[in-house]
Nucleic acid binder design. Sequence first.
DNA 1: CTTTGAATCTCGTAT
DNA 2: ATACGAGGTTCAAAG
Lengths: 264, 264
Amino acid sequence: MAPVRHVASPGLEEGYRFLNEAVARRDLVVAVARCSVEYEGRGASRLGEGDRLLIVKPDGAVLVHRPTGYSPVNWQPDSHVITVEAHNGFIVLRSVRKRPREVLVVRISRLYFAVAIHGLVDEAEFIEYLDEGEIADYLARHPEVIEEGLRVVRRERPLESGYADIVAVDREGRYVVIEVKRVTAGMEAVKQLHRYVEGLRKNNPGAKVRGILAAPAATKEALSLLSSLGLEYRRIDVAKLHREAKREKPRSRVASLLDFIKRS
Amino acid sequence: MAPVRHVASPGLEEGYRFLNEAVARRDLVVAVARCSVEYEGRGASRLGEGDRLLIVKPDGAVLVHRPTGYSPVNWQPDSHVITVEAHNGFIVLRSVRKRPREVLVVRISRLYFAVAIHGLVDEAEFIEYLDEGEIADYLARHPEVIEEGLRVVRRERPLESGYADIVAVDREGRYVVIEVKRVTAGMEAVKQLHRYVEGLRKNNPGAKVRGILAAPAATKEALSLLSSLGLEYRRIDVAKLHREAKREKPRSRVASLLDFIKRS
DNA sequence: CTTTGAATCTCGTAT
DNA sequence: ATACGAGGTTCAAAG
């Protein structure tokens, strides 16, 4: 069981003591507070007073969230030193990161609520499907999905210009560089493929090298650049490949999320 | 004042009611709970049981944080529908996003603590400085910092291969492509500059085109590649440019963070 | 240590 | 709406 402490609308001294002890104890600390924030390091920022959600994790990660959106407005991925002090009616939380040198300072003018939990345990495995690696693995095992007669030479081949997802040889002995994308491919994907193709050409002078972009879709600008560079596009059905891959080597024998939703 | 409600180690029914009402009320909801998580949408993932921090924001953003690190393990940037239900001893929070279609399901087996705050107000302006755009703007206004006699032709010039930060002409009529970096430049910055220079050469056959990487520092690998590509490097003092830019158009008249730290 | 590329990237902005 | 690039990107893998 995880011991939980909390404090509601405390005065300066009580709030300071609570946060200070919780941080020192390496609890997971969550606070809702009116505060201002300053940051200086790789960049620099200032945020005036407002109501925010503050999170200090046991590993020293610090997050400052505004009441909307996914992204924290300020943060520290991990900090070397976190201190809490009371000054002039403010509770000041300061978090310093060593490398790179970064400082985050939260000045709390009013602490609405704070919770501290000690000894949380989370050792579960996080399993991701439908990522680019899974799709590229499957395509490397089944290159015929891209084109009949392809023979895969390498997966994740290191080139001077980066890593090609798949390098194969086609029926006519030409190299085929395949760049796999899980989502709509934009200019960046085409440039990446182009770099890899050029890199392979440079390393194998005289060899014929084709480049194929395998993606569920591509922006029209990307398609235009692709064809002007003499590269090719193959549409792939990501969901279908995912189903095939799952059938081939099932990773977990549990009902699908959609089934789960239907049941519950 | 923001009304705050909380519940500690509630039973299934009490915990369910608390979360359900808080979500319906569009409170900021924070819960510490033992739970498992499933996600399906653009990607797909499964996370077994463990202690997590759950956040539901008034705008429908949902975050699931493990006890370490900056990134949420699962999330929903904004959801159309969030529901809370009680089933077979679990509290089930389900968040559905419309576009793209994505579903996030959190199955809570044990609720350690939950807080709900209503009516948070955060209207402060977030001021960032020292970003790449500001530095490039300043250099575009003051190209003499890079080299005497430069005449800026364009800022953010669209090229076939991307956007060059600055394109200028030097005293001898040669084009100068300038790539600005706010932090230590790595290989990617050099490759980017190289692509832009090649792009400009292609569009202006016969024209002489130089390429300058303007950054506070560069890795030695980057410098090596740079010189082998016939490109140039100019060290810039970001902090100094920031001071100059601020003097030119002051955004805020507050003491520096370092001063603040010294004082407190 | 650096490099490299993915990401449910998110977010802003221009078209 | 879509596309594109920046980000204090973070993160993990690989050299």
